[in-house]
């Protein structure tokens, strides 16, 4: 696998940017997709947000100074794009963020790209009850299996606060599912 510094340097040069960008997309497309999908829930929306994320990365790579890792910079862009997408959707429909979450979960049952059973549907309902930050931390730790240090770099929150958020999230989800 190509070293991150090499990839960034190739992305920042006109003669090598196209080939390097293809490598970048191939390397991160699945991980970023699942990160986004867990926020927006629907495949088509996840696809839109993912493509916008890569376009933003391509357009702004010249400004990337390497102060953080490339993947954490891309995850930050993906997270912001997904959250902005949801905010715009709720504004467009003149409904609250909570109501939008309810609608998204309601739509899952008829979604051809969701094959979850009742437990998985309940899990999504449980996750939807969490505050935004706890939701992100839970998904990144439980499903994406990030280390706390990595989440800390992406979300800009201390490791201690992340551990507390994750613990609270787990407790709330367990309680919801046991009910």
């Amino acid at each position: 696998m190509i070293a991150e510094e090499t990839l960034v340097s190739q992305l920042q040069q006109k003669s090598t940017e196209a080939a390097a960008f293809e490598i970048l997309v191939d390397t991160y497309k699945e991980r970023l997709y699942w990160h986004i999908r867990r926020i927006v829930l629907n495949h088509d929306d996840a696809d839109d947000v993912l493509q916008n994320t890569f376009i933003k990365v391509f357009n702004n790579i010249s400004k990337f100074k390497g102060e953080s890792k490339l993947y954490s910079w891309m995850y930050r862009i993906a997270t912001n794009e997904a959250l902005t997408f949801l905010k715009k959707a709720s504004k467009r429909m003149s409904i609250s963020d909570g109501e939008l979450q309810d609608r998204l979960i309601g739509n899952l049952e008829a979604d051809p790209y969701f094959e979850g059973d009742e437990i998985q549907l309940q899990l999504q309902k449980a996750i939807a009850t969490l505050p935004e930050k706890q939701k992100l931390v839970f998904n990144m730790k439980y499903f994406e299996e990030f280390k706390y240090e990595e989440i800390s770099e992406i979300l800009g929150t201390s490791v201690g606060a992340l551990k507390a958020s994750y613990h609270l999230a787990i407790k709330k989800i367990e309680a919801f599912l046991k009910d």
Binding site: H43, E115, Y142, I173, L177
Partner: peptide, 15 residues
């Protein structure tokens, strides 16, 4: 926060 038994690891999403 050790892995809770009641929370499924598979979410049911597909592409």
């Amino acid at each position: 926060s050790e892995e809770p038994s009641v929370v499924p690891k598979n979410e049911g999403f597909k592409v």
